[in-house]
Amino acid sequence: MSKTDSKAEDYIDYHEIIECITGALDAKDQYTANHSWRVSELAKKLCEIIGLSNSDTNELHIAAHLHDIGKIGIPDSVLKKEGALTPDEWELMKKHPAIGYEILNKSNRMKQISGIVLHHHERYDGRGYPEGIKGNDIPLGSRIIAICDSIDAMTTERSYRSILSPEECYIEIEKNLGFMYDPFIGKYILEHWEEVIKPFLDLKNCI
């Protein structure tokens, strides 16, 4: 068997694992499961635009599917709360990247992915969580998921805030480059905005 065939089989195996894990997440919170699926599709598209290898793209696609898996460990009273979280509830919610890391890091085949999941809420300026790392110290996959995660959140209606238009979302991404988001990644997504956002919103409308 060639190395290419082996990697393809590994990818299929990974997706079988993903379907099992995300099935559990879907049973707990359908919004989170659908959100993770949309983020994974957007992240895959962004990887293709940036020109990442198939191997790196596949790995990130998987990590994006699983980036919120730690929310399985968040109490329903917090996860499904209608309205803004209290400071104590927010501290509980912020534990989900570390919970996801602990779940995935138990598998040798998921160790790389677990690190991407752990850091997907870090900020480029170091003001994120859980570890407050910044810039290129944040794994590339985490930096890509962070911007895709924000795009889906901003363009999704929630009970506690209004949906943003694609134009408003563009402005929010642009003004936060170098602060929340990696400016290199942000440049790619803004330069290819129509190519990225139209199929993404079409995808959202299908759910």
Rank of each mutant, 00 (worst) to 15 (best):
P75Y: 03
M93V: 06
P87G: 09
L79S: 09
H61Q: 07
D56H: 13
N58E: 02
G83T: 07
I69H: 02
K81R: 08
E89Q: 15
T86A: 08
D68L: 01
V78K: 07
G70F: 14
V78M: 05
T57F: 05
L92Y: 06
L66I: 01
H61S: 02
L85A: 07
L92Q: 15
D56M: 14
A64H: 01
W90Y: 14
K81C: 05
K94S: 09
D88W: 08
D76M: 10
A84W: 11
K80N: 15
W90R: 15
L66Y: 00
A63P: 09
E59W: 01
S77Q: 13
N58P: 04
E82T: 09
I72F: 15
M93P: 05
I69W: 01
G83S: 05
M93Q: 12
P87M: 09
I74R: 05
S77V: 08
I62T: 02
D68R: 04
D88M: 12
D76Q: 11
L60D: 00
P87W: 06
P87Q: 11
K94T: 06
D76F: 08
D56F: 12
D68K: 02
W90E: 14
D88F: 09
G83L: 04
T86C: 02
A64T: 03
A63D: 07
A63Q: 10
A64P: 05
E82K: 14
I72W: 13
H61I: 01
V78N: 05
L60P: 01
E82C: 06
H65G: 03
L85I: 06
I62K: 01
K81N: 03
L66R: 00
K80D: 10
K81H: 08
I72E: 06
D68W: 01
I72S: 08
M93A: 14
V78E: 05
D88L: 14
D68M: 02
I62Y: 00
I74V: 15
L66W: 00
